[in-house]
Every structure is written in structure tokens, then in C-alpha cells.
Design a protein around this nucleic acid. Sequence first.
RNA 1: GCCUCGGUGGCGGAAUUGGUAGACGCGCCGGAUUCAAAAUCCGGUUCUAACGAGUGUGGGUUCGAUUCCCACCCGAGGUACCA
Length: 992
Amino acid sequence: MSYNFKEIEAKWQRIWAERQTFRSYNDSEKEKFYVLDMFPYPSGAGLHVGHPLGYIASDIYARYKRHKGYNVLHPMGYDAFGLPAEQYAIETGQHPAITTRANISRYREQLDRLGFSFDWSREVRTSDPAYYKWTQWIFIQLFNVWYNRESDKAETIQSLIEHFKKEGNSNVHAACDEDTPAVSAGQWNAMSWKDQQKFLLKYRLTYLADSEVNWCPALGTVLANDEVINGVSERGGHPVVRKKMTQWSMRITAYAQRLLQGLENIDWPQPLKDAQTNWIGRSVGAEVRFLLEGSGEDIRVFTTRPDTIFGVSFMTLAPEHDLVHKITTPEQREAVKAYVDATALRSERDRLADNDRVTGVFTGAYARHPFTGKSLPVWIGDFVLAGYGTGAVMSVPCGDQRDYDFAKHFHLPVPNIFEGVDISGEAFSDKDGTLLANSDFLNGLGYKEATQRVIARLEETGDGRRTVNYRLRDAVFSRQRYWGEPFPVYYEEGVPRMLPTTHLPLVLPEVAKYLPTESGDPPLGNARIWAWDREQHKVVGNEFIDHKKIFPLELNTMPGWAGSSQYFNRYMDPHNEEVIFSSEAIAYWKQVDLYIGGIEHATGHLLYSRFWQKFMFDLGLVPVEEYASKVINQGMILGTSAFVFRRMVYEVVDEVAGTASYEPLSTDPYLVSRNKALQSESYFTDEVMEDMVLTKYPDLAAYKGRIRFNDLPLHVDVSLVHGGDELDISAFKKMKTEFRKAEFILENNKYIVGREVEKMSKSKYNVVSPDAICKDFGADSLRLYEMFLGPLEQSKPWNTAGITGVHSFLKKFWRLYHSGPVETFYVSEPPGELKDAADKDNLKTLHKTIKKVEEDIANFSFNTSVSTFMICVNELTSRNCRSREILEPLVILISPYAPHIAEELWEKLGHKESVSTAPFPNFKPEFLKETSKEYPISFNGKLRFTMELSLDLSTEEIEEAVMAHEKTREQLDGRRPKKVIVVPGKIVNIVG
RNA sequence: GCCUCGGUGGCGGAAUUGGUAGACGCGCCGGAUUCAAAAUCCGGUUCUAACGAGUGUGGGUUCGAUUCCCACCCGAGGUACCA
């Protein structure tokens, strides 16, 4: 019991908490550095070893920066609103606040055990009213602005109202709803208050609108686009359907271009930037108007290939397109209605599933080509999406594969407009490689020039214009759930109004039930005290609602990403009750310098929070437009699942010529076979197995000759596997009653489990808890090992066995300075045999380590640092070096990685202050200087011998010395070398 | 299909302005210690009997390529009737 990590770690965790060692202050003279982790959702399962990976990395960096003299902000908190707590509340009736609090305290315990240097005085919880007060406050700010495309920023809604009063909405370049009609000043002034308010909703950055939303019936709520994966919900995998609902939305599309441009100036991982770029999906093209024959209507389409306009042979509308019912001819009405209804019934998922099938229907209407005047039939097809572009396309079968397939299927013409291209088999969709033909004024032009010309012509005639289209949609902001932030909104005459900010927070009401009401209202509909008394400025009972003084409050709550979109700024001044954060605090901390978290938030949290930051920047609340200058995505730590193979016993019922059907004889697992390899061994044939079964279960004798086996893999808890892959059979039998009478097929008296690497999860029984690791090896070992596993950004499987390596390194490190039966600490006090002074070799070891570790931290290559420490301690041990001159800097160097052992040694060295305040040791290159080196001498690239050469020699002198060497002459054997290549300090290569 | 990342011993992984491939750890083998085991310590460990070969494959540039270029194969992740 020499290195007593339990005692050491408990001691320092206590001292850090008592002395508030890692508290950071806003009034420091030092330069600031802000290291942030994505705060966790405190789930009931607690942490597994995968969760702390990013926290360990950020902690190392934060501690390193402290050594470097920075005032480091390294906070932690909880993203505490969310579905699992609510789901649990529905099942048990327990208030989500209670389970959330319990989960948080368990998380805190686990985090504390790992020795993180968080400043807990700044902790935030998104479900805390003192915190969500400011989430609600931002919502109100978003409501009170519109986006001016001319100044390219958000401006107060009052400025827009002034403009409407004078000029109506002409000359307003705003981000607004697409269907916003033109309104003159006279019309505006004549509008009722109610109509004015409804009109303004089309401009506000957060607005209430009837929109098609992703409705998840199983979860009973709407979901944002990023919460829907392949037509099912991200959480739980439930089907999602499109539904029209009145919902709050965030006009994130106003910021599409700035969100895209902002990516250029921030140091974020390329895959993350790419994910955001694709999600925003900017495409440049043209909007073209096609007049409909025989009616005043027109179809507006978006195309990225206006150059192919002479190849249009028909038009296609999305089934949900507004024009569909207006233009359909009486003859086609029935067919169209049937098609539209059928499409509406098919879920998004079905539509995605069979994308080979071509479906569509003719409306009977014709549009006119803007240049040729030709009649173009107007079709409906579900390959056209209502939500993208204008929900209508001009179909160019020769240049687009979908149009091509559609045309072929419905026998529509496929005119060719490409010079010398064969389109008999498929469409030609390359932009380059050919010139246009059959295209009137575009003949002989390539893609680029033709596009410019045609847009110019369209703009002249007023039939079209150049446009930029984005895939990004406005984000739905309402959730029909209980456990989220209430909207600070009440309704007057059906018009949403904001609560006065002085009344915030609007606290989540108590409800009798967490399920929706019987009339289908969200759970807040169950709250009895949920109405706004405008005169008294307080929340009162529903029964008093009179729509004059007392109004109903909004029943939806905000989505999970609301609280996480501003927390990083709130950490700067978390207890401020007057403002979201003081201007001094934000001016000092400015932005996050390093943000570590998972890439799964690429198109969710990491996009929405950038949007809010830009909005707050426009309002002058924050000094920078991007809140995180550098992001690192840590990889996932995977679990190594263990399997047993349950050999099911079947009776052959019918076996004819290779085909057979089997009936299970029993669900009892009579036998458990070792693994796949053993099953294939010839000894365990079905006959042998049958004998074993019949010996053990004589009552099955009647089935003799007809018994067959089938192996089913079954997860077994990894805690029951010892010494690598050996199963603890007796523990396993105790764990599951159904296995009590199982027979195990052993090899050398061992049962070896099957292995597979999977995501770490409770249901796969492969979870390794950090608590167990801390108990057996200590937090320092766990920290070192998680870093040692591999590159931070890479996913890697967990293997507990490997931790002994780093653990014995710590023991070795400890032992170097402790000896004797009573564990005396020795440094620079040689009892006889010790070498005291730091000699050249040891100084070299130290500075080599300083150099490498500092480089590694700068590159976030924490894994190789750990190796460097091991080599360093091995070298010092082999020389029995216990010099204070070496140990002191070494302890500082190791402290970011293994802070507890470092503190303990630091204290033993006689320091009163925490090691975390000690300055990082300076690298001195002079100690690494060598005077000579073994040079490898190679001939034609092949190594022949090595010779010692002084490093002071010049290239020419080395060459001379090598050529004069006896062995060189031997090799050359009288020939003359063509060339001698000398790389100073590395190699000499003689080419002959 | 498109985008991104990756491919090096039995395993996790080192090494890039191109310069002795396999650092460090795990595992394995051998030894010391022990009545024995655990723990600990020391040594060995890419493959091959050897010659030699060797960083996914095939080319190229170079005196020299894991590193640079071209083509391809495989794996992981993301994304998509996006006009």
C-alpha cells in the first residue's frame, strides 16, 4: 500500500472544495481564457466511462492554461429540461423537478470524484427559474425585432411600424413570410390593432404561424427538423407525420447567409462545418415565372439550371402546392384528388422508402414557356417537395434524372438541348462538358455564360430573377410537453402578447397530470393557476379569465435547445438578477476560447446557439458574432459487449432435400456453447450434442435423431467477465434464474465469451462505470487512461484491462520519491546511494518532456503526452534521480493530467499554494543539445553501417569525413559515388 | 449517389517542412522473487527457418515515401427525390 490514491484523492478533492481553488473572478488583471464543455443532460443512468472523455480533455487544457498564467473560466452546469424526466413523471406521477434534482446530485458526485477543476460557484441549471428567466427574456427580445436585409441585421419592431405608418411595407427588405401581401400606408393605418399585430407576426424573428410541422403522435409533440432522422423521431424512433399546426417558430432563415459566412472565420472541425453547410444548403439559381394558360395565375419555380430552360417539356407541382386545386380541370379533378389524398396519407418515411417508384398525375392545365410560348402540361408529382424552393419545378428531362424518369414513365417528350450528347439512356446532368443546342439565343454557350444570359433576359422581361435558395427551414419552437420553459406569452383576442419583463420568470405551474388534456391541449392545459392578470401583474386561476383584464397563457413549452442556446454567456455572470449578464462581464470574457463536445449537436445546438449569438450581437448585447472560436469534437468511447451463445434445442419437424422446419422443444437453454469457433469444431457435432442433451434430459428420448441446435447470441454483463474473456459461470447462473440449469460447454475448464464492440448502453450490458474504476485504480489513473486510449477526436473501444499500464506508471512515479517501510518522502536528501544533483542526463530528460508535453497540449494530442511521462519516469527511475530540481517542474507538468498525485507531491515538496497556481516550466533547448550523433550511413538507400559524427560539422565536413571512412571505401570498392546526400542530424546517403 | 474522416504488428496506437517504421501501453513468451498465487521487477516480442518482405491495392515523383501526386479497394460517420 504505497501509493494510496484513495486517501490522496479524497484529501485533495476536499481541499479544493474548501478553498475554492478553481473559482475564477471577473475582475482579474490576468488575461482570460474560457474553456467550456457541453453541459450534460442528467439522466437517471448516471455517467459511464465514455461521458467524461471530453471533460478530462478540457480539464487538462484549463489546468494547463492556469499554469500559463491565464485567468481561466471553466464552468459546468446541467441541461436539465427534457423528455426522460417527463416520461418518468408520466409513469410514476413524480414531479420531474424531483427526479432531475436527484440525478443532478448523482452526476455531481461522479464528476467530483474525477477531480475536475470546475468553478462550481457558476453552476447553471436550465430548469432553474432564475436561469430560464433569461431564456424567456431572450424570447421576448426575439419577438420585438424584425430582420432588415438592407442593414443585414435585426432591428426593433418599432422601426418597422414607423415605416409602415409612412410608406406601408413597400421598400422594406425584410426576412418575412413568403405570402406577405403588399400593404400601403393607408391600408396599414386603417387596420385594426388585431390585424396589425397579426401582420407584424410575419416579420418578427419569433412568430406564431400555421405551419406544416413534424408531428410525432407517440411522443405527443412536434419536433424540429434536426430531431427527425429518416422519418422517425431521434428520441425513441417513433414515426413522424406532417401536420398543420399553429406553432411558435424561430426565423433562423433570416440568418442563413451569416451562419454560412461565419463558418469561415472559426476554428471548428471540418466535418462539423460541412454538416452545417449542408444543412443550410445554399444554392444559387433563378426564380422563373410561367404563366398559366386561360387563367391569371402563374407558377413560380426555383431552378439552379436556368440555362436549360429550352429543355423544359412540362411542369411539376408538389401535391401540397396551393395552386393544385385552383388549376385542376374538371376532367382531372377526381384523379388529382385521389392522388393528393393518397400522398397525404403516406408518411415521410414511406415516401423515402420507395424512391424508385415514379408516381404523378396530370392536372389538365397548361403553362406557357416564357421564351418559346409553347404549351407545357402541368403535372403533380410527389418527388417535388412542398417545403423546398417554391414547391414547383420546371421539368427538364434531358438534364435531370428525376424529370427524365418521370417523362419516360408518363410518355412525355424529352427534347435534347445538349450538343452531341446521347440522352437515350439517361439524363445528362453535368454542368460542364457540352454546349447548348436547340436553345435559341443560348445556342453554343456553356453553362456559366448561358446562365448569366438567361437570367439577364428574364430580368428584362420580368419573368424571373436571380435568387439564392436555402434548404434551412425556420425552426419550430413549440413543444407540447410539461418539462420545459413556459413561454412568457398570453393571448388577447387570439393575438400573442408578451409578459412584462419585470414579471419574469414566468414559473412553470403545478399540474395534476403530465399528459395532454382530454381536449388535446398540452399538459399545461391541466394547470389550474395559469392565467395572466394584466392589471395586477400576476398569474391567477383559469376561472377568472375574462379576456379583458385576465387572459389565457400559452400552453406550449420551449424545446430542449432553448436553454442551451445562451448558457455559455450566462456562465460569465450567472447570479446577476438585473441583467442577463453585465456588460463588464461580457466585455472581459467575450467568447469561449475552447468548446469541447460531441458532433451529434452539429445541426442542433451548435447551429441554434450561433443563431442566438448573432441575434444578440445585432442588439449590441455581445461583442462578438461567434461565441466559440474553437470547437473540438471528442470521439465516442465504445463498449466491448460480451456474449454467450444460447444453444436452443429444436426438433426437426420436416426435413426434405435440404429444407427443414424446426419447432423449439423448449425455451429452456439447455446448453450454452463457448463461442462460434468452438461450435464449428468437429467434436461438437449435432450427434454429440444430442447425446449430451439426452443424457441430461432423458425425457426427451422420444426425439432421438430429430434434435437440432441453433445458437442465439445473448448479451452478458461485462462485470461477470474476468481475466480478459473468461465468464464467471457461477455468478452468471445466479444472475438469471433461467440459466440456473444451463449446461456450459467448457474448454480447459473455462468459458470464453464472444466479443463485439458496440455503443455503450445499459441495454447491452456493456457499461463500465467510472465509479468502479476510481475505486480500483483512482481518478488519476482513469484520467490518464482515457487520454492514453487514443486520439481525442476518434471513437475507440473501452478495455479496462489496459488501465494497469498507466496505473503502474503512477505507482512508479510515487515510489521513486518514497522508500522504506514507513514510506518516507525523499527528495534531494540522499541516504547514501542517491544521486542528488540534476546531472546533464536528467536535465535532458526533463526538458525533452517539457517540450513534447507542451507541443502535445497545443495540438490536443493528449495521448502521446502520457507516453512521454512514462518514458520520463522510467529514465529517472533507472538513474535513481530524486533531485528537487527535476521533480518540481515535473510535478507541474503532470498536474493537468493527474492533479491529485501532483498536489500531494507538491505539498510534500513544501509548497503552501496549490500546484495549479504554479507557473508552467520553461523549456530550455540548451539541455537537449548533443555534441555528436550516430549517423546511419546508407548506400543507395540501404543502411550499411553507422558512424559517430560531431554535430558541429557542416554538411561538407560530414561528407568529407564519411568519404574518408574506411568502411565507406570498402563499400564503394573503387567506384566513384554519383552523389552524397547529407541531412544534418539525420542521415548520410551515398548514391552510387 | 454526394460529403467527411480513416486503413500501420495479436490489440489500442506512435512517427509528416519526405530521412533508421512500429514509440508508449495492453496481450503473449521467458526469467527473478514466492511454499504457492497475486502483486512487483528484469528481458524478449512486425512477419519469415533463412534470404528477405513490410504502413489497404496498383502506379508515379524522389538518392530515399506511412508522409507528396494519380487511379482504385475497403471501413466508419453524416446526408439526400433539395430542382
